[in-house]
């Protein structure tokens, strides 16, 4: 039904491991521009690793490869290669990892001053507006922020440079209801601007349902199935999304994995 326009992310045959054991075992994933895709899957399935590769934070291959050892993986983020064109990718992508370690003494305004120097599209007015909306003060030090405030500060930092692609790693996990609602407001407001794409890792079914157009099921280091939220709901007779997700994740793993590879 929906026209598939340009792709914000296109991944083919991506394998990756920190040691000899592969974390990603052949990921294929397409994320269309202007849509929200949720990556859903068990802990330790490799979702966070995939996000950090897409953000250009983790090289999935060497910058210069010997011709006979060239990786067959294709990774395109906004049409760019996150290894060879890492600078451009990082400038255009907003990446909120599940945790960030800033120096404890650092004030929010110091952090933002650093980012302002790094991102060509950084918007001071937008940053100030987001801080006010999230009830944060520029003079607050990292050490005095609660977990929820730290999550909001990270989100504000990545929204303030108005990235075309936003990668969110469990943005709602471990937050109190008020902070959760503010994160949701921030993400929705971001989506309300033209052509914004989001790839989101989340375990919260309610938030996936509110935010996502598509769900990509992730298991054993690869994407086993991509479906729209409505399709998934329809696959459960009571229209229960959580039940549907569990069913899809546990149903005969071999056939769905084969389908994922064929696609």
């Amino acid at each position: 039904m929906e026209q598939v326009k340009e792709l914000a992310i296109s991944v083919r045959g991506l394998t990756f491991g920190y040691t000899r054991k592969a974390v990603l075992t052949g990921v294929d994933l397409d994320v269309p521009i202007g849509q929200v895709t949720a990556l859903v899957g068990a802990n330790g399935a490799g979702k966070s690793t995939l996000l950090s590769i897409l953000a250009g934070a983790e090289p999935y291959r060497a910058r210069f490869e010997l011709p006979w050892r060239r990786s067959k993986a294709v990774v395109r983020v906004l049409g760019l290669d996150p290894v060879r064109q890492g600078h451009q990718v990082r400038a255009a992508v907003g990446y909120v990892p599940d945790r960030t370690d800033l120096p404890k003494w650092m004030r929010i305004r110091d952090h933002f001053a650093l980012l302002g120097a790094l991102y060509p599209t950084w918007d001071d007015a937008e940053a100030a507006r987001l801080l006010a909306e999230f009830d944060l003060e520029p003079r607050m030090r990292n050490a005095e922020l609660s977990k929820g405030q730290r999550a909001l500060e990270n989100l504000a930092a990545e929204l303030a440079h108005r990235p075309r692609l936003l990668l969110l790693d469990e943005p709602f996990s471990g937050l109190d209801p008020l902070a959760r609602r503010k994160v949701l407001d921030g993400v929705i407001a971001h989506l309300c601007e033209d052509g914004r794409t989001v790839l989101l890792v989340s375990h919260s079914i309610a938030d996936v349902e509110r935010c996502a157009d598509h769900v990509a099921l992730f298991a054993h280091g690869r994407v086993t199935r991509v479906a729209s939220v409505d399709e998934l709901r329809a696959s459960n007779e009571r229209g229960d999304l959580e039940e549907a997700l569990v069913a899809v994740a546990t149903e005969g793993r071999a056939p769905s994995a084969a389908a994922g590879r064929a696609a």
Partner: peptide, 14 residues
């Protein structure tokens, strides 16, 4: 669409 999406906290595409 955008006003309502913000109001009810829902993806504007939905």
């Amino acid at each position: 669409v955008r006003d309502l999406a913000r109001l009810v906290r829902l993806n504007p595409n939905t």
